[in-house]
Design a protein around this nucleic acid. Structure first.
Length: 727
DNA sequence: GACCTGCTGCGGTTTG
């Protein structure tokens, strides 16, 4: 055993021996030495089964055992983004902690109140909690926080990549600042992740005050060989057999008999393919091995699918959304299929990481792309085969080991509003200066200056908004609306969720669907991989009762398209302008790629970025990702053009002035950037309580890039500002 | 043309 082993506490050494480990992994050795010999914050980056949890906890627990604290409270804090993950990790830690008689307390919405009561009464050992449950502790037990966490010496943040510049990431950082202020002592932070493209870029999110001091420990995993195949299909308006049938047939042929994951892109598409695969299995009279898995299905059904994947024996393919992209260990997956191009390279990479985990086996990606048949009225985006091209760009970038860096730090005014309410609730009142100090000077909202903070407070205190009010001594209190928000348990999460119907069959819940779906008795439904007829709709309690049937359509689940990164779009143009043919394309995909390249040249994009299509109609090749392309499209819409956005392209029609004049005026007047009055700017949970001026500032901090417009317009106009079209 | 995540306290009843 290595030197690191001898640094560990006796009970921990005993546990390692009992496990039969003959050596610690390199990433564990390095983490153990760093934890024991330094006081630095640490990021551990290793694959899902790479032993990260043990790497962090073996030395942290050793420290607790060898140097017990007399302060009282939990010794270690673990924050995880999923309930299932906390349950899993608590079980793993229990086996270690038993050896040393340390308590392990899992804490989330499904943990019995008795376990929580025991934790509050006698806090010690390891607490594993979700951000939302920690939030609830602040709101409901604000006065006890300092007692519960007095002895805590470190916090472990699992799946760190989900906690970067997201609403939930900012939420956690705010809670950690508040925790440190309550106990008057900093907490050492240890972040764990399997999918940080460049782990150093995550350091500012772990330690905002001194990112350079964070120690990054990366496992040099032996990477499994990756086999990739891309198969293309075409679908047309007059197809007798829908193209999904062909894709499902191929999936059935290739995947039956093993454990696989099929990422179908959207819940509706998951239901469509699961239904087709079930029908094929029935026609061929073979046992069903294909099951849908997404967030709107009942916990019961999802558990069933996960258990089948984990278990030996019954081959199982889950047709899924990103529910199975991260988190719990689902065992050996032979093949990952992806239907349609994904939105990010990092998610593609994470998905592929699910297969080929067994030593000596390759990871396998089967990518399926459906393009529209070219008919006379084919849209230009279909003629360019943009879906296929994006998919190739994603695969190429993934093979080059690139993935999207974390986003830059936004204002997060919705989450700021949440934390203002939470601190006032925690303390029964707070001064504006104190709130600013905790949240903005010391906490994560560092881009919010005092003036902007005052503007937010004024919006929350507006009569009619009533989230907060000011007492005569200047102290801010919750207003009537603020009070009712904070009192309800739905307050604890910072992210938005929509209203839904429960779908019930014979008293058993099958799952949920958004209330935007039109429902009436007699209608047919595909859901949870089966076919149903609606027998009753209870609009008051939002319950739809169904019974077995034989036809139907899956419901709509809504959602907005994802952001494509500049680098992906830039690679798409390289592919459209290039000549190489990737070896993993099937024959049909090669044909479609060549068609896309020919169309690109024929439309004239090789000569310049602006293509006139007659009748006040143009196509503009922006060559940049969603954020900047959308910003230009809003600027054009504000000038009364009609605009459709695509990856790296805009289709523009109408307008009161010529395209060239409009681009020039946007280039020269970027400081007057305006969005159309009808553009929706409310995306997050507490946005509806803020003014339009604040929403615009929030959007400008992360969703829009007006500062990019002058150079983009200049590039589009070209140096001589001429193009082959009439002004 | 998208996906995912989360949730307390209390009152009533039953049981030993």
């Amino acid at each position: 055993m290595s030197e690191a082993f001898h640094h560990l506490a006796r009970p921990i050494q005993k546990w390692i021996r009992r496990k039969g480990w003959d050596e610690l992994r390199p990433v564990q050795v390095r983490t153990i030495l760093t934890v024991i010999e330094t006081e630095a914050d640490i990021i551990v980056s290793a694959t899902t089964a790479g032993g990260k949890t043990e790497a962090a906890f073996l030395p942290l627990l050793s420290d607790v055992i060898d140097k017990p604290s007399d302060l009282g409270g939990f010794d270690l804090l673990y924050i995880g983004p999923l309930k299932a993950l906390i349950t899993d990790q608590a079980q793993r830690l229990e086996s270690i902690c038993n050896e040393a008689d340390l308590a392990v307390t899992p804490w989330h919405g499904d943990v019995p109140a008795s376990v929580k009561a025991r934790g509050i009464e006698n806090p010690s050992g390891v607490l594993l909690i979700t951000p939302e449950s920690l939030e609830a502790l602040f709101v409901r037990r604000g006065t006890e926080i300092s007692r519960l966490f007095a002895a805590t010496r470190a916090v472990v943040l699992d799946e760190l990549h989900t906690m970067l510049d997201s609403e939930r990431g900012v939420h956690i950082r705010s809670l950690l600042t508040r925790l440190e202020l309550a106990r008057r002592n900093r907490l050492r932070r240890v972040g764990l992740s399997a999918t940080l493209g460049e782990p150093r870029l995550a350091c500012p999110f772990l330690c905002g005050d001194d990112p350079g001091s964070v120690v990054v420990i990366e496992a040099d995993d032996e990477r499994a060989e990756l086999k990739v195949q891309l198969k293309a299909y075409e679908s047309g308006k007059n197809d007798r057999v829908p193209v999904q049938a062909a894709v499902a047939g191929e999936l059935f042929l290739r995947l039956r008999g093993d454990d696989n994951l099929v990422f179908a892109g959207a819940r509706k598409s998951v239901e469509t393919y699961a239904d087709r695969l079930r029908r094929i299995s029935e026609e061929q009279d073979v046992p069903l091995e294909f099951f849908p898995h997404h967030a709107s299905l009942s916990r019961e059904h999802r558990d069933f699918v996960e258990q089948r994947l984990k278990g030996e024996g019954l081959p199982t393919t889950a047709v899924c959304t990103s529910t199975l992209e991260l988190g719990i260990d689902i065992g050996d997956i032979v093949c990952v299929a992806q239907i349609g191009a994904p939105f990010t390279v990092s998610s593609l990479r994470q998905r592929i990481g699910r297969s080929g985990r067994r030593r000596g086996k390759s990871a396998i990606l089967r990518q399926y792309i459906v393009e529209q048949k070219r008919e006379n009225d084919a849209a230009f985006a279909d003629r360019l085969r943009l879906g296929l091209v994006r998919s190739i760009a994603m695969i190429e970038l993934m093979l080059e080991r690139w993935c999207e860096p974390p986003r830059s730090i936004a204002l997060h005014l919705s989450t700021l509003t949440h934390q203002i309410l939470s601190i006032i609730a925690e303390r029964g009142g707070a001064s504006a200066a104190n709130l600013y100090s905790v949240l903005c000077s010391q906490g994560p909202f560092r881009n919010v200056d005092p003036q902007l903070f005052a503007e937010v407070l004024r919006a929350l205190g507006e009569p009619g908004t009533d989230l907060i009010e000011q007492a005569t001594d200047g102290i801010l209190l919750l207003g009537s609306v603020g009070e009712s928000l904070v009192e309800h348990y739905s307050f604890y999460a910072v992210f938005q969720t929509s209203e839904e119907y429960q779908i019930v069959s014979g008293g058993r819940s099958l799952g949920t669907m958004p209330i935007e779906n039109i429902v009436a008795p007699g209608m047919l439904l595909i859901f949870s991989g089966q076919r149903w007829k609606i027998v009753e709709v209870d609009d008051r309690d939002r319950v739809v009762s169904v019974k077995s049937a034989t036809g139907g359509m899956p419901p709509m689940f809504g959602g907005e398209p994802g952001d494509i990164h500049d680098k992906v779009v830039s690679r798409m143009f390289q592919i459209l302008e290039g000549e190489e043919t990737p070896a993993y394309l099937d024959e049909y995909a090669v044909q479609l790629l060549n068609q896309g390249r020919r169309s690109y040249a024929m439309l004239g994009f090789n000569d310049g970025p602006l293509v006139a299509r007659g009748d006040n109609s143009w196509i503009v090749a922006t060559r940049v990702g969603t954020t900047t392309t959308t910003t230009l499209s809003l600027a054009m819409r504000a000038k009364n053009f009609e605009v459709q956005t695509h990856d790296g392209f805009l289709e523009i029609t109408g307008g009161e002035e010529s395209l060239l004049r409009a681009l020039r005026s946007i280039r020269d007047g970027a400081q007057n950037f305006a969005v159309p009055n009808d553009a929706n700017l409310a995306f997050e949970k507490f946005h509806s309580y803020l003014t339009r001026s604040l929403l615009l500032k929030d959007a400008l901090s992360c969703r829009l890039e007006p500062l990019e417009l002058p150079s983009l317009c200049q590039r589009l106009l070209g140096s001589d500002e001429t193009m082959a079209m009439p002004e």
